[in-house]
């Protein structure tokens, strides 16, 4: 994660409810901390706005996949029916495009969905065999079940770990822990 051999990945606070986390996230951001991330067992409404996260590129990737899938599907049908293997059936046009729509539709959906899912996984850097947050014992036991975590990530070497810890402790969390990277 950090090119500088800093072992501190960030400081993490634990909250019992999503409302407390939301409030803490807003306060932390207002206090000027950059590189915030929150970890929740389910998507909490309003959290990405509270953290000031940017919009995702997934819809554009999906659109691209749909266009590519549709073109590939129609192109395959056009090429096989008009160029590679033209069959004159009752004098009907070789490029009988209305009959090609169903398959074009299916390949469009297939392309869009494949791009959406693989695009999401790639942007999320999944699969990810290791992440430092799992080094925190409370996190590994509760983050995917019933607790809400806010992490101020170190980012640069000049990160003031003690200051961040002190600030988070002021938010009255259930616990605070340093996240150490290997």
């Amino acid at each position: 994660m950090n090119e500088q051999s800093s072992k501190l990945y960030g400081v993490m606070a634990e909250f019992a409810t999503p409302e407390e986390l939301l409030e803490a996230a807003e306060k932390t951001r207002a206090a000027g901390f950059a590189n915030l991330n929150a970890y929740t067992p389910y998507p909490v409404e309003g959290l990405s706005e509270a953290l000031g996260l940017k919009r995702t590129w997934v819809p554009q990737i999906t659109l691209l996949g749909g266009i590519l899938g549709g073109c590939a599907g129609f192109g395959l049908q056009y090429w096989t029916s008009v160029i590679a293997y033209p069959l004159n059936i009752g004098g009907r046009p070789l490029n009988s495009w209305p009959a090609f729509i169903p398959v074009t539709f299916e390949t469009t959906v297939l392309g869009a969905a494949t791009f959406a899912v693989f695009g999401m996984l790639a942007l999320n850097k999944l699969p990810q065999p290791y992440h430092p947050v799992f080094n925190v014992a409370r996190f590994a036991a509760h983050a995917s079940s019933d607790r809400f975590f806010l992490c101020i990530e170190a980012g640069k070497a000049s990160f003031d770990g003690a200051g961040a810890r002190k600030f988070l402790e002021g938010l009255k969390p259930a616990s605070v822990a340093e996240v150490l990277d290997e």
Binding site: Y39, Y42, L53, V117, P127
Partner: peptide, 17 residues
């Protein structure tokens, strides 16, 4: 589970997908 950690960035892309 692909190393899922429930980070908000991950969730927001996930919800869009």
């Amino acid at each position: 589970s692909l190393g899922w950690n429930g980070s908000t960035r991950t969730w927001s892309r996930y919800e869009v997908v």
